[in-house]
Design a protein around this nucleic acid. Sequence first.
DNA 1: GAAATTCTGTCACTCACTGACAACTGTCGT
DNA 2: ACGACAGTTGTCAGTGAGTGACAGAATTTC
Lengths: 204, 204
Amino acid sequence: MVNGGTDGLRERKKRRTREALIDAAHTLFCEKGFEATTIDEIAEAVEVSPRTFFRYFTSKEDVALSLADEQITAVLEAFAGQPAGLPVLTAMRAAAVGVVRAYEAEARFGSLQRLISVSPALAAARVERGAARLDEVARLVGARMGVDPAADPRPHLVASVLLCAVQPAVVAWRAAGREAPESELTGQAFDLLAAGLDYPAASG
Amino acid sequence: MVNGGTDGLRERKKRRTREALIDAAHTLFCEKGFEATTIDEIAEAVEVSPRTFFRYFTSKEDVALSLADEQITAVLEAFAGQPAGLPVLTAMRAAAVGVVRAYEAEARFGSLQRLISVSPALAAARVERGAARLDEVARLVGARMGVDPAADPRPHLVASVLLCAVQPAVVAWRAAGREAPESELTGQAFDLLAAGLDYPAASG
DNA sequence: GAAATTCTGTCACTCACTGACAACTGTCGT
DNA sequence: ACGACAGTTGTCAGTGAGTGACAGAATTTC
């Protein structure tokens, strides 16, 4: 028996190590850049062996993007929670804006975005991670469209576009020189996205 | 002086080495898979040193995607050549379908697609390469929209979506079990893309 | 043919990442 | 409290990607 609510010492220690690694990595990445930082440096900063680093994260990209992962999960949950009947793009817009607004208070979030936009390796890794969750997104999109993702390819199609589009959209917006709260950027990016693909509009 | 029309021996030799490397790499990738193939094996197959390999290509992904690069270039040229006034998505559809149709006779094209869809590392690398040409695409999109990409963020936004969307769309379609000529896949993917994002349609 | 270019191979190195094994540290039953 | 057990960690050794430096070979130019 035992745990009076909290987990055992072992669990707590692991969580602390993990957090410390994320923290140290993030700091070093911001200071020296992603590629210029070595695993050895990260491990040394936390006083663990480099081997241990790889027991917590599968790669250098993995530490950097562990925060982004939480965010993707949050967006998907929010997407699932949008009222039925909403167009897919509209629902995703609402989900993304909501989550970004919730996160933008944290300083680490902004610096992570900056990190990703500067490092092609990180940007690629993020896309790769997104692709790994393609089926999950397709399921949600399929549910919203009222079709079975196993039989109809459209949900997968739309899902892959949404996955690829959301993040670059914000980055592109920022690259264009607009500086504003992330949540606003995201919303406007979606607006322009919907309008821009049909430009000049085929119908009205 | 000299070159009676053909380039010098040195140039020809370089071109041949380059082609041989692409060829050997492609064959090995198809036989053993992308990650399971080492640079040493590729180099040995062509009888050059591994160091020389890196004088022709910057990475393992680079050899694999050298063919895909030609294709992207072709698509962009075709996109630029579409009649003005066409909606951006429509123009890109026509460009992509045309190019894919032109390429699908080559066997290597199909196997490259298969390779990419199987290897996350390759898929990520392709996105990365596409992103490197973002500005180029944005220029073309901006021209079609009649706005200045330097002042208006929309072209960049639309460009990044187009870049990210085109290839995954085809892959997703194929993953859904549809087997048909690439050109048809591409066309249908675009059709569903346009419809799916607005599903259920907001207007009409 | 000699000199200047340009390619190429060899060597030595860094860094990401992995398997194996031994030492250590919480955990749990008694 | 103690010992068996399981999970965690460090060390070691190794593979593979990718890079800089230098010397020698091939090509081009004169």
